[in-house]
Write a protein that binds this DNA or RNA. Structure first.
Length: 434
RNA sequence: GGCAGGUUGCCCGAGUGGCCAAAGGGAGCUGACUGUAAAUCAGCCGCGCAAGCUACGGGAGUUCGAAUCUCUCACCUGCCA
C-alpha cells in the first residue's frame, strides 16, 4: 500500500497570496504548502495569530506577525487577533531560562494595552472584518479536572518532551517548571477552541512558535479528525549577526511612550544596506516593482540611502501615523543635515529637540560635563570627561575640548537652545530659561 | 542526609597572599575613514578633577597586606544515600 500521490491538479495549485508571502520571505515552515495554497484559494478562511502580554507593548517581532496577518486579510481572509490573557499568565518556555511570573493585575493591564495595539493593524470593517479574542475567556472557566481529562489526554509525553525548547531547557542547569512545560497544551487548546467557535483553520506565528503551532494542529486532528494549517514566518535576521529589533538602548517597542517615534525612525534609517531590501519586503506594503527600484538605488547610489528613507518613512507612518512621521523626518533633517545648525528655523529646531528629548535649565549655565549628565548623554562625571577628552562632545556642532567649558549666552540658538551631542548619533537639547 | 566542586566586572572567562580596578574574548563608547551603512584601524570601557574610594555571592575572621587563607550563611553542579 502506497501513500496516494497528490494529483497533478493538486500540485499545480497556485495561490497569489502564498506567492506573495513567499516572495516577501515570510514563509519558514508550513504544515503543507500544497494544502495551504489550496485552502487560501478555496475561499475565505478564518485564521488566527496570538500575542502574549509579556510586556506592556508589542515589539518588532510582533509587528512582523501583525503585518503578515494584514497581508493575509488583504486577500479576503478573516483574521482573529488573539491576546493571551491566560497564556500570558503562564509564559512560554524560552531557551534562556525560566520566566518570572507577572501578577494577574499586571497581565490584565498589558492585555488591554496590547489589544489596542493589535487593533491598529487589522481591518475591522467589511465582510472579512477582524475580531479580537482573549484566551482567558475559555481557559479561566475550565476546571483542572476538565483540563486534564478533556485536553491533557490527547497530549503524549514523548511528543511534549521532544519539543525543541523543552528539550533544551531540560538539559540546562535551570531545568523547566511544570508551569512552562504546560504552555504548549494551552496554546494547542486555543487553536482547538477557535476552530470550534469560529471555524478557524490556520494559525500563523514566528518560527520559534512552531512547536506551539503544531501542538494545536495535532490536537484538532485528534479531537475532530480535521486537518488544519499552520504557517511559521522566519526569524528576522541582521547581516552583522546581532539580534534584530534591538538597539544599544534595548528593545524597539511599538508604544511611542516606550520608544519615541524619533528613535523608531532612526532605527530604520540606520538599516544595513544588506538588510534593507529584506526589511522592505517584510515591513512595507510596497509593490515588487517599487522594491526592486529601491534595491537598484541601493546598489547604484548607496550614499543616497533612498531605500532606508523609504523604509523608515513607511514603517514609522504605519506605526505612529503621518503627523508623527513628518515631524520626525523634519527633526532628523535638522539634526543630521549638513547645513549650519544655527540656520535652522526656531520652530523646526524646537520640534527636533522635542523629538530627541531635552532638559530645561534655569539660571546660570552649567558646564559641558554637567550638561552631558543632565541630558543623560553621559552616565557619570567620569563618563562625560572621558567623552570630552576623546573628542566626542559638541555643542551646536562645535567640538568642545575643555571639560570646564561653559556655554555663553551668545551661543544660545534662538536665545534659548543648545544642541548637545555625544558622538555622531546621540543628540539632546538644552532649553535655557532666563 | 553524606562527599566533592563551584559562585569574579554588562556577558563569557583567567587569576589561588602584595606587581589586581583584576589577563583574554564578546558587547558597548569615542575618534579616523564614510553615506546617520558595513568593514578596517586607533583609543577608551567602576566612581572620583585629584588624593583616594568602592568592588571578585552575603557576613565574620587571620594577616602589615586577601578575589586569593579560615569560619559561617545562601545558592548552583556532580556523585553517593
Amino acid at each position: 500500500m502506497t501513500t496516494p500521490e497528490p494529483t497533478d491538479q493538486q500540485s499545480e495549485v497556485s495561490s497569489a497570496l502564498f506567492d506573495e508571502l513567499s516572495w516577501r520571505g515570510l514563509i519558514s515552515t508550513t504544515t503543507g504548502d500544497t494544502e495551504l495554497k489550496a485552502a487560501f484559494e478555496a475561499g475565505p478562511i478564518t485564521f488566527y495569530v496570538g500575542f502574549d502580554p509579556t510586556a506592556p507593548s508589542l515589539h518588532m517581532g510582533n509587528l512582523v506577525q501583525l503585518l503578515t496577518a494584514r497581508r493575509i486579510q488583504g486577500y479576503g481572509h478573516l483574521p482573529l487577533g488573539l491576546v493571551g490573557g491566560s497564556t500570558g499568565l503562564i509564559g512560554d518556555p524560552r531557551m534562556s531560562g525560566e520566566r518570572v511570573l507577572n501578577s494577574a493585575d499586571t497581565v490584565a493591564e498589558w492585555v488591554q494595552r496590547i489589544r489596542v495595539q493589535v487593533e491598529k493593524y487589522l481591518d475591522f470593517t467589511g465582510e472579512n472584518a477582524a475580531q479580537i479574542v482573549n484566551n482567558l475567556d475559555w481557559t479561566a472557566p475550565m476546571s483542572a479536572i476538565d483540563f486534564l481529562r478533556d485536553i491533557g489526554k490527547y497530549f503524549r509525553m514523548g511528543r511534549m518532551l521532544a519539543k525543541d525548547t523543552v528539550a533544551t531547557r531540560l538539559k540546562s542547569d535551570e531545568g523547566l517548571s511544570f508551569t512552562e512545560f504546560s504552555y504548549q497544551i494551552l496554546q494547542g487548546m486555543d487553536y482547538l477552541e477557535l476552530n470550534r467557535r469560529h471555524g478557524c483553520t490556520l494559525q500563523t506565528g514566528g518560527s520559534d512558535q512552531w512547536g506551539n503551532l503544531t501542538s494545536g494542529t495535532e490536537l484538532i486532528r485528534k479531537v475532530s479528525g480535521a486537518h488544519v494549517h499552520a504557517l511559521a514566518t522566519p526569524l528576522i535576521t541582521k547581516s552583522d549577526g546581532t539580534k534584530f529589533g534591538k538597539t544599544e538602548s534595548g528593545t524597539v517597542w511599538l508604544d511611542p511612550a516606550m520608544t519615541s517615534p524619533y528613535a523608531f525612525y532612526q532605527f530604520w534609517i540606520n538599516a544595513d544596506d544588506r538588510d534593507v531590501d529584506h526589511y522592505l519586503k517584510v515591513f512595507s506594503f510596497r509593490s515588487r516593482a517599487d522594491i526592486a527600484a529601491l534595491a537598484e538605488s541601493t546598489a547604484l547610489r548607496p550614499q543616497a540611502r533612498e531605500a532606508q528613507r523609504a523604509l523608515a518613512s513607511e514603517v514609522t507612518t504605519l506605526v505612529h501615523g503621518e503627523n508623527a512621521t513628518a515631524s520626525v523626518i523634519a527633526a532628523s533633517t535638522a539634526l543630521f543635515g549638513r547645513g549650519d545648525i544655527a540656520a535652522v528655523e526656531g520652530s523646526t529646531l524646537e520640534a527636533a529637540l522635542a523629538a530627541t528629548g531635552f532638559v530645561e535649565v534655569t539660571g546660570e549655565l552649567p558646564n559641558v560635563v554637567q550638561l552631558l549628565q543632565l541630558t543623560g548623554l553621559a552616565t557619570s562625571n567620569s563618563d562625560a570627561r572621558r567623552t570630552i577628552s576623546e573628542g566626542g562632545a559638541s555643542i551646536n556642532n562645535t567640538r568642545v575640548n575643555d571639560p570646564d567649558h561653559v556655554p555663553l549666552v551668545g551661543d544660545l540658538l534662538h536665545g534659548r537652545w543648545l544642541v548637545l551631542r555625544r558622538g555622531k548619533k546621540s543628540v539632546s537639547g538644552v532649553k535655557v530659561n532666563s
